Each structure stands twice: as structure tokens, then as C-alpha cells.
Computed example of a mutant assay.
Amino acid sequence: MKKAVLFLSIALIVAPDIALAQQQQDRMQRPSQPQPPRPQPPKPQPPKPQPPRPGGPSVQPLRPGTGGPAIQPPRPGTRPVKPLPQHRPGAGRPPQFRPIHRPGFLYPHGYRYRRWTIGLLLPTIFLSTQYYYDDYAHLGVGAPPRGYRWVRYGPDLLLVRSRDRKIVDVIYGAFY
């Protein structure tokens, strides 16, 4: 039985090689037929000139000192108007900031104080009227832009984008 299995496995291994050798021999004995010519790859073309883009030198205004209009100095006797300092998100406390005393903050069940930073997402529970802070004028910060809310979180005041809960500004220690 072992011998029969051995001869059968040898035949299965050698048979494909014999068939392949016969095919190659048949090809060599046949007269060769002319092969069709291979298509040549296209030759590279020189780059075509690009049409002028909008905003090129013909559209841009001339710079001072190159024949264009000169920058006018301020008129004598007028003072430049100094804008009021604005609070920039991420700049810390605004210049006219005053911390105020408010009653203690009650955290929702399962929450405790956490120091929030810009870029984090505030949990949805804090985006409710219970946590909104609308008396921002007493603190010296401006009204929030459209789509943003001032939210009190413990002693801190957070400026939060309402649609995605992203914190864009934090004023630490706004309440004591």
C-alpha cells in the first residue's frame, strides 16, 4: 500500500513537468509566425504655455515706490483713534476683568471640579440654562459671539461653541 501511494505521488509531481516540456518542444518545431509589431509609447511633448492666472500682476495694485499711489501720512492735528481693548479668546483674563462673589456651585451628580482647557468638549449637561452665565458685563468680558455661550463651571467661566460643545476660551477664577 505504501509503495502504491509513493508511486502515485511521484507521478502527480512529475506529470505536469512532462506536459510543460512537451508544449515547449511543440512550439519549437512549429514554424514561427511573424509577430505583430508592438505599439511604441508616445513621445513626450514639450509643455504648452499656460494661460495667465487670475490675480496676476495685471490685477494687483502697484506697490508704493514703484509708480503707484503713495501711502498718505495722517493729517496734522488729528489723533489716531485708539480702539477699546477687546478680549481675545485664549489670552487669559481681559484687562477690565473683575472676579465677583457668587454662591457656591453645585456640580451635577457624578461631576467634580476639573480644570478645562481650550479645545476640549464640554459635556452636554452643562449646555443648559442652569449653567449659562448671562451677567458677563459685571465680570468685564464682552457678550459672546453668535452661536457661543458663557458657561459657569465651578469658579471658572468657559466660552463654549453651542453647536459642538467645544471650549474656545477659559477664564480661571472668575468667581470666588
Rank of each mutant, 00 (worst) to 15 (best):
P42E: 04
P42F: 01
P42H: 02
K43I: 04
P44W: 00
P44N: 07
Q45H: 02
Q45D: 04
P46M: 04
P47K: 12
P47M: 05
K48R: 15
P49N: 04
Q50G: 01
P51S: 10
P51T: 04
P52E: 11
P54I: 05
G55K: 08
G55C: 07
S58K: 13
V59I: 01
V59T: 12
L62K: 15
L62S: 11
L62V: 03
P64W: 07
P64M: 08
P64K: 10
G68L: 04
I71W: 00
Q72G: 00
Q72K: 15
P74S: 11
R75Q: 14
P76R: 14
V81D: 02
H87E: 06
R88L: 15
P89Y: 02
P94F: 06
P94A: 14
R98D: 00
R98A: 10
P103F: 00
P103Y: 01
Y107A: 09
Y107V: 06
P108S: 11
P108A: 12
H109S: 13
H109Q: 14
G110W: 01
G110R: 14
R114F: 12
W116V: 14
G119A: 05
L120K: 13
T124V: 08
I125Y: 01
L127T: 05
L127S: 02
S128V: 00
T129W: 00
Q130D: 13
Y131C: 07
Y131M: 05
Y131N: 09
Y133R: 06
Y136A: 05
Y136M: 01
A137I: 08
L139M: 06
G140P: 04
V141G: 03
A143L: 09
P144F: 01
P144Y: 01
P145A: 09
P145D: 09
R146P: 03
G147P: 04
R149S: 15
W150R: 07
V151Y: 02
R152T: 05
